[in-house]
Structure formats: structure tokens, C-alpha cells
Computed example of a mutant assay.
Amino acid sequence: MSRVTVLDYGSGNIRSAVRALERLGADVELSADPDEAIGADGLVVPGVGAFAACMAGLREVQAERILTERIQAGRPVLGICVGMQVLFSAGIEHGVETPGLDLLPGRVEQLNAPVIPHMGWNTVRPPAGSVLFDGVGEDTRFYFVHSYAVHPGAGQGRYAATLAEHGEDFVAAVEAGPLSATQFHPEKSGDAGAQLLANWLGSL
């Protein structure tokens, strides 16, 4: 059984992520302890709300050290929603730029769309050979709730991007060696999200 830590730093969607992983048979620990987070088979970094607030919480639990050590050791990490956004270089909200964890190149900016936030079910376009989306049909929908996203293009030689469209194309998921992340909420995406989480657990 895979041992998974969900990083507890004050984010709001932690419990739903824990329950979704437990339903798939994972041994899940909710913890802010750096040693626990570094040593687990898999680490999940959830996130909802403002980029700057999430970064403040992550700094409190030494997330930069935790993620750097895990990635250097090839130990899998999964970011969810703002937990994906903070992996990038910076986030810009209301004209204020906040440094991110800078594990991936790119900036999180407001979507250019007629309706904000992007809330509801949407299809995605994964790259060929995706591990996260293995066995997921092309018309499958995932649940999104966000106003900000990473635009495709900048620095994508360093990660494989899954794209979605809401007013414009944006990065819906990334895969970069042991580092994976989704802008949507797999834990709120029914069978589709369960398949994606099962695929991630299978990679541990």
C-alpha cells in the first residue's frame, strides 16, 4: 500500500483530497512535518484561494525545502489547483506579483475570458504518452474552479502540458518527472478524477 502525505499548511480542500486517496486504497497521512512529507512515497500539495496566502502557508511549513529534496530524490509530488500554481515562478493577482516556489518556469495570470471564474466541468487535451491521463477518454470532463492560470508556451520544454480552454488556452496539468500537478480538482471530478489519482498512485 502506498504511503501518501497530504501537506497540511492551512489550505481549504485538504480533507476531500485525503478521502479521495483513501478510497483508492492509499495509506494517507495529513501532516505539516517536513520529515514525514519528505519520506512519504507520494506527497500531495493541495491549494485553494489566493496565491499569496497559499505561499505564506507553504513557507511556514518549509515547503520549498520539502519539494526540492523530494524532486532531487525522484520522489513523486502532486499539486492540486493553487497547489499547482505555486510550483511556478510567480503569481500575479490584483496587480501584485508574488514569488512562487519556482520549480517550473512561468507565471500565473488572470484568464482572459468573458466569464470569471472558470467554474464547472471542462475537457482537457493531454499530451501523447501522459501517465496521469492514461485510460482517460478525450471527451472526459474535470471540475475546475479558478480565475488564474498559466498560459501555454513559456518554458514548456521543461514539462509536458495538458491544455484546456476557457476564453483562451491555459495549462490544465503538468508532468515533469516526479512532479505532477492539475489545475482542476481530481478529488471533485468523480470517476475521471479517481482514474487520474489512481494513475498517480500507480506511479509511486
Rank of each mutant, 00 (worst) to 15 (best):
V145M: 12
C81R: 11
R15T: 11
V4N: 07
G106S: 01
V18Q: 14
G137T: 10
R125M: 03
A40K: 10
E97I: 02
V145E: 14
F133R: 06
L78F: 05
F144T: 08
A32G: 08
R158E: 14
D41R: 01
A161N: 02
Q195G: 04
G100T: 06
W121G: 07
G91H: 10
D33Q: 00
E93H: 05
G202T: 02
E165Q: 15
A194G: 15
A149I: 12
V171I: 13
S147F: 04
G135I: 13
G167L: 08
A154Y: 13
V96S: 11
G74L: 06
I14K: 10
S16K: 03
D191G: 08
P117Q: 06
S31P: 07
N122P: 07
P152F: 00
D169Y: 04
F51E: 01
A56V: 14
V4S: 12
Q85L: 01
G135T: 12
G157Y: 10
I92H: 04
A26D: 03
H146E: 03
T68R: 11
Y159F: 14
W200P: 07
W200H: 08
T123M: 05
D8P: 00
Q72T: 12
E36P: 15
Y143I: 09
L111Y: 05
L21T: 00
R23W: 02
I14R: 14
D27M: 11
A149F: 15
F170G: 09
G157F: 10
L201M: 01
T140V: 14
V86C: 04
G47I: 05
G12F: 00
A113L: 03
G137H: 14
Q110D: 03
D169P: 15
G74M: 00
E60P: 13
F51I: 00
R75A: 04
R107E: 01
G25A: 05
G74T: 00
E187T: 14
I116R: 08
T5D: 04
A17R: 06
A198W: 02
D169K: 15
E36V: 15
V45N: 07
L30Y: 03
A73C: 11
A194S: 14
Q110T: 07
Q62G: 12
A160K: 14
Y148D: 01
F133H: 15
I66F: 03
I92E: 10
F51H: 02
A128I: 11
Y9A: 01
R19M: 12
A176M: 03
T123Y: 00
S11Q: 02
E22T: 08
A149W: 06
D169N: 13
T123G: 13
I38R: 13
D35C: 13
V4P: 06
A172L: 08
Q72A: 15
E168H: 13
A73T: 09
S130I: 00
E93A: 04
A194M: 12
H146F: 09
M55Y: 02
G193F: 01
A40P: 10
G49R: 04
